[in-house]
């Protein structure tokens, strides 16, 4: 099995943590999750969608609640379907609604959280809700890892097809339209892709931190990049490094993996601001 190959590979690393199966699983999970989020994040940052993706993450609580209500066996599938519908709905309302985008998003976000908490806290316990809020990448198993691998390949393929029309639509929608780009469809597909990636990652990273993984590496890379390929590459590198370093830090300090990864990404962001400052002065 492929996974055994991975276990053997990680075993060769001269670290104490590399010998635990749960650490090997977590490492692979982060290596699979972070690059896709980093890539999608570049466009989310360019299109000022950080608030939107934050709301999407929060709505996972409502998705989980819905899953519980329906008695679904596959929680992730429910989360994904729910996430896609939610994202499309917000997108539609932003296009046609009267209020400004951030007000609409705020309404959806708060409603999603509240609905989710009500459904998940049935029976008087917050345990279900809190595990989704923080996520638990140390609990991931080979089956879920396979899904993450499929998602990464599928996601990158979709990103390759979607990016050019999406970029042109972002800069000048009328010009894109006149060239035959179906701007609405392309924007909707982007939003769905983000929803799928977020919902796949959310059980491992948690509702509270998922947006950081989408936004922070891309935001840090934005400070350093001068072109789209640079932005994508730097974003992926920063997110991978944050994932690995965060995992090791969490192991060493005995703290939450998701939180440690996000803090690493935050440090990279701070560094990127510094580097940009220094480069400006040097010029």
């Amino acid at each position: 099995m492929l996974i055994d190959f991975w276990y053997k590979l990680v075993n060769t690393l001269p670290f104490e943590w590399a010998h635990y199966v749960f650490m090997k699983n977590a490492l692979l999970a982060l290596l699979l999750l972070t690059p896709l989020l980093a890539l999608l994040g570049t466009m989310a940052v360019n299109r000022r969608m950080a608030f939107f993706s934050d709301a999407l993450g929060h709505s996972a609580l409502a998705g989980a609640g819905a899953g519980l209500l329906l008695g679904a066996s596959n929680q992730t599938a429910v989360l994904i379907v729910f996430g896609v519908l939610w994202a499309l709905l917000i997108s539609r309302i932003n296009r046609t609604g009267g209020a400004s985008a951030d007000t609409n998003i705020s309404v959806f976000s708060s409603t999603g959280i509240a609905l989710g908490l009500v459904l998940l806290s049935q029976g008087g316990s917050f345990a279900r809700a809190s595990s989704l809020l923080v996520g638990d990448v140390l609990a991931i198993g080979p089956n879920d890892l396979l899904w993450l691998a499929v998602a990464l390949v599928g996601g990158v393929a979709a990103w390759a097809l979607l990016y050019n029309p999406l970029l042109l639509s972002a800069v000048n929608p009328q010009l894109a339209d006149s060239r035959g780009v179906k701007t609405r469809l392309v924007e909707d597909l982007f939003v769905c892709l983000v929803a799928v990636a977020v919902m796949l990652a959310i059980r491992w990273v948690g509702v509270l931190l998922i947006n950081a993984l989408l936004i922070l590496p891309a935001a840090a890379a934005r400070n350093l990049a001068r072109s789209a390929p640079q932005h994508a590459l730097l974003s992926v590198i920063i997110s991978l490094l944050s994932g690995v370093l965060g995992l090791i830090a969490a192991y060493t300090l005995g703290s939450s993996v998701g939180a440690a990864v996000v803090l690493c990404a935050a440090v990279f962001y701070a560094l990127s601001l510094l580097v940009r400052r220094v480069l400006r002065i040097a010029n």
């Binding site: 940052v45 360019n46 299109r47 000022r48 990016y163 050019n164 029309p165 970029l167 042109l168 972002a170 800069v171 060239r179 890379a221 934005r222 990049a225 001068r226 072109s227 789209a228 390929p229 640079q230 932005h231």
Partner: peptide, 16 residues
């Protein structure tokens, strides 16, 4: 699109 977005003119024309 964001003012400071790292998208070069080459990127934009190439996308078309």
């Amino acid at each position: 699109m964001e003012k400071g977005a790292p998208v070069s003119v080459a990127d934009l024309v190439a996308s078309a």
